[in-house]
Design a protein around this nucleic acid. Structure first.
Lengths: 221, 221
DNA sequence: TGTACATCAGTGAACGCGCGTTCACTGATGTAC
DNA sequence: TGTACATCAGTGAACGCGCGTTCACTGATGTAC
């Protein structure tokens, strides 16, 4: 029942954006609006549930894409698979993507429960870099980093329990930004009148990020 | 009067997000809501005006930042100035930033009048690259590009009337994505619990993009 | 200098609609003895 | 096998509020003669 409510709510999200209306959801379910209060304490609670679900959904897709590459040493293959999983999920679920990566919903503050689901996707990406480093296939670029930036990166690595040199992690973060920047621009309309072949453009961008991280060329089996 | 309405509307945007209410704006101006219809045909018209203004405001700031570097051959100086103008404007006007770079407003389709204002900022950035190329200070990286990507880039260059090799423009676009990706992530909350020193992080990212484009180190006068 | 008229910014009431949330309730289903 | 009771999903009316838009209007200001 909770699942069904969320499903209908997701449908509404798609047509109405983040202005989610409890009454409209109830109407669509053939219920009276007050009935929803048996399942969610408030509209914000429903929103939170949808946000957590969205983070989990994209995270699960990315993890599955990564796991789908049998050769764990094919780092670039894993990286490309994850990146395309991100974009594919975003294109398939634009409203949910906007909910988590778009403008904050006015008057809504995400509770702490969203932190863990939110980290699934970035963690999957970082793990590829960490694996590559552990396997001796990714070298430390050794770039100079501003102290506070280095400090943040070191903390991130230790929070996630991965062993990655700060300068290498920096390249990973850079790529993460470019990946999501590209998807957001595509979804939010900044590519209108600019980029036409978006799939090719994205693939090209992702290869560029892989080069930048130093991921070896794709394995040919 | 139109100016004043827009000013009040901008204030509302800041607290309420894109759910802009005509009645609330009118109330704040000590008017009756129907009075606004003398100035704007509809709520969407007001939104459009705000969107155009926002694009123009950030574009003007970036252009001014660029013009503020007297040595036109100091390409990196110009690049950094523009990038920081982008971030500064975004931090100072988060709601307007969200309006133009965040999730699309549900049920609202931007009319064609927004295209030109929207291009001011990217054009200012590309012009730096074009100037560098014209002055022989930026070499063509000569990267292989997928055909359709190359075609888009060539068309963009010719639309804007700039002479930039596709592979160099590609680096510019990459940087533009990273720049806005970084600002959006900062503003939309993705850096919570991740990046603490955001000014340093942004500056670092921008230097990395400048390196990537091949902009020579800053001039020391 | 004075009168007649046009312009036009802003009013106020109304239309028809939406919303989140509360609250006492009905009525079916399941459980305990 | 039958009765009494508890549980609980869902109802329906209400509260108090919001919204965009239309429309006939007032009343001040400016213009023409």
């Amino acid at each position: 029942m909770i699942t069904e409510i969320k499903q209908v709510a997701r449908r509404h999200l798609a047509s109405e954006g983040a202005n989610l209306s409890l009454r409209a959801v109830a109407r669509d379910m053939g219920m009276v609006s007050s009935a929803l209060y048996r399942y969610f304490a408030s509209r914000d609670d429903l929103l939170t549930a949808l946000i957590i679900d969205a983070y989990d959904a994209i995270g699960a897709d990315v993890e599955a894409a990564d796991a789908g590459i049998p050769d764990r040493i094919d780092l670039r293959g894993r990286w490309l698979a994850c990146a395309h999983a991100v974009r594919d999920w975003a294109l398939a679920n634009p409203a949910e993507y906007a909910l988590i990566f778009g403008s904050p919903v006015p008057g809504y503050a995400a509770p702490a429960d969203t932190i863990t689901p939110a980290s699934r996707t970035p963690v999957a990406l970082i793990r590829i870099v960490a694996d590559g480093h552990a396997a001796g296939r990714l070298s430390d670029p050794g770039t100079d980093l501003p102290v506070s930036v280095r400090a943040d990166l070191v903390r991130i690595a230790s929070d996630l329990g991965v062993e990655v040199p700060a300068a290498l992690l920096d390249r990973g973060v850079e790529s993460w930004l470019q990946m999501f920047g590209t998807v957001s621009f595509e979804l939010f309309g900044q590519f209108n009148n600019v980029i036409t072949d978006r799939a090719a453009f994205f693939a090209h961008r992702i290869h560029a990020t892989a080069d930048r991280i130093g991921l070896p060329p794709e394995q040919r089996p």
